[in-house]
């Protein structure tokens, strides 16, 4: 399995339109993905995490469940606003 760079870029552009940046770190059969908010990012505009994971799965070639996703609203140990 490998990363589909073209689709990944497209996804990054989509996020950029809401002023988010996405950092992807693929390691074997899992991945760490961090989404970082820019100054104009709208907190509510990120899709729910499970949807983001299902979008990232085929793009990264990794099982959605093995993608660790960090949203900007995930403070230290808290993600009460990610819903």
């Amino acid at each position: 399995m490998s990363v589909d760079q073209k689709q990944l870029d497209q996804l990054k552009q989509t996020l950029q339109a809401d002023d988010y940046r996405m950092d992807v770190d693929v390691r074997g059969d899992s991945a760490d993905v961090a989404i970082v908010a820019g100054p104009d990012a709208c907190e509510e505009c990120l899709v729910p995490k499970p949807l983001m994971q299902s979008m990232l799965g085929p793009v990264l070639g990794i099982e959605p469940a093995s993608i660790r996703l960090v949203y900007p609203t995930d403070g230290p140990g808290a993600d009460v606003t990610t819903s």
Binding site: Q10, Q13, T14, A17, V47, L51, S54, M55
Partner: peptide, 15 residues
């Protein structure tokens, strides 16, 4: 849908 967000729109349709 605005064209920048086809990716998330399509993902939801698939889901």
């Amino acid at each position: 849908v605005s064209d920048a967000f086809r990716v998330s729109a399509d993902a939801m349709a698939t889901l």
